[in-house]
């Protein structure tokens, strides 16, 4: 089974298309498969645009409550390099990172599980020329497009509220998309192992502490050193710092490492997901 499944995976070095015109035609016809799934989702959300739009509001509500509300009481906190910044400026990029994670996780876990087990969407699609790895790429691609739209909206609001002081902030949007990529891919890979809705408690169990403790709401320096080391290993912390450094205009070389870490997680999740979908659906 596994060898058969891996043969259905997409154009990596392992599966070279047959030479000649037929092979080229076939690739041209089917390699856009992941785009077709994105097209399908775009169409489906036309019937649920309110659900789509609601994704913009969640981080905004947090920003209003924590940044502008709680921020009045807190005053200044140490930002990048220990420089003191107003709390609302500190927390805003953190909220962008968190909402990128949450949005990606929601799309790639609940929605994917529903399509996999109940809507039988993937069974229908795999009867067409589309291959399992293209499904994985399409799902994750969709999560990223959605995430990018939300990130642009949030960044514009930050700008409007005067929370942005550096042109580097433009890179916060691709940064947020990268966070989304890591979590969408890992989340979807995990979803392929889930048996029932109860298993989603694990998703909450994993994302809730990340959400609360990844130096999103306060600086890492409040923790004792051993705890700091653990938190520095988590992807959301790396994402939070990435966005905070960009938005507050203090990018350093560490930025590249953080980006590479998130990208590597995403790629690993993508590969696992393609294989798992083949194993689950092509039996």
């Amino acid at each position: 089974m596994s060898s058969a499944a891996s043969r259905m995976l997409p154009p990596t070095g392992r599966m070279l298309p047959p030479a000649g015109r037929l092979g080229r035609l076939r690739r041209a016809g089917t390699d856009a498969g992941s785009l077709r799934l994105i097209e399908r989702h775009a169409r489906a959300y036309r019937h649920a645009w309110l659900v789509f739009a609601s994704g913009v509001f969640e981080p905004l509500l947090y920003l209003l409550s924590l940044g502008l509300g709680l921020g009045v009481l807190i005053g200044k906190v140490p930002g990048p390099g220990g420089r003191l910044v107003p709390y609302r400026e500190f927390v805003a990029p953190g909220l962008l990172a968190v909402s990128s994670m949450n949005g990606a996780m929601y799309d790639s876990t609940f929605n994917v599980f529903f399509r996999l087990k109940y809507a039988k969407l993937y069974d229908a699609i795999l009867a067409t020329p589309i291959r399992p790895a293209q499904l994985a790429l399409g799902e994750i691609g969709w999560a990223l497009i959605r995430g990018a739209i939300y990130a642009v909206a949030f960044t514009l609001v930050m700008l409007a509220l005067g929370l942005v002081h550096s042109p580097w902030a433009v890179l916060a949007v691709p940064g947020a998309v990268l966070i989304g990529f890591a979590f969408a891919a890992v989340g979807m890979a995990g979803t392929t192992y889930m048996k029932s809705w109860q298993d989603f408690d694990y998703v909450i169990l994993a994302s809730m502490p990340l959400f609360l403790f990844s130096a999103t709401f306060y600086p890492l320096s409040v923790y004792p050193r051993p705890l700091q080391v653990i938190i520095e290993c988590t992807p959301l912390y790396q994402g939070v710092v990435l966005l905070r450094d960009l938005v507050l205009g203090a990018p350093g070389p560490g930025l590249l490492w953080r980006a590479a870490y998130l990208a590597a997680l995403g790629l690993a999740g993508l590969l696992v997901t393609g294989r798992r979908l083949a194993r689950l659906l092509l039996v």
Binding site: T30, R36, E39, R40, R43, T128, P129, I130
Partner: peptide
């Protein structure tokens, strides 16, 4: 429409 698109 969508199914036809899956076939490219």
């Amino acid at each position: 429409l969508v199914y036809g698109r899956y076939f490219g």
